[in-house]
């Protein structure tokens, strides 16, 4: 186990992003390579889960794209992620907010957290 941790520490450069939780609305800047050109695409949506530990941690972002739900799983330490910004803090009671998939319209909103 220690050997695996050692390999992960050596091979994966951890990125510094603000800590977000399920329910938050974030925008992920993804580097996209087209031929030899590189551009940045923004994927904006709700975080519905955080999965895994340490170097192999991933998170899932869900957004509605012209009426169709789109989910994308990002490894947190992926070299293709340029930046992560938190747009809104959401108030949810669960660590995995899968129930949001079945909700439509006004019910699919997440209450904003007030500090």
């Amino acid at each position: 186990m220690d050997a695996i941790k050692y390999v992960q520490e050596q091979m994966i450069t951890k990125s510094e992003y603000p800590t977000f939780r399920p329910g938050d609305t974030i925008s992920v800047s993804v580097k996209i390579k087209e031929g030899d050109k590189e551009r940045i695409q923004i994927f904006k949506g709700n975080v519905i889960q955080l999965n895994g530990e340490g170097a192999t941690k991933t998170f899932t972002v869900r957004k509605m794209s012209s009426g169709v739900g789109v989910e994308r799983v990002f490894p947190l330490n992926s070299p293709f992620i340029d930046d992560i910004k938190i747009l809104k803090r959401g108030k949810v009671r669960r660590a995995k907010i899968y129930y949001i998939r079945k909700l439509v319209g006004k019910k699919a909103r997440i209450k904003e957290k007030r500090f």
Binding site: A3, I4, Q8, M11, I12, T56
Partner: peptide, 21 residues
């Protein structure tokens, strides 16, 4: 055999790999 993990190779591809002592 120690176990498996995944790392990014030089092209940025996420590859599954085995750790051997």
């Amino acid at each position: 055999k120690i176990g498996m993990t995944s790392v990014y190779d030089n092209t940025g591809k996420y590859v599954a790999c085995t750790v051997i002592e």
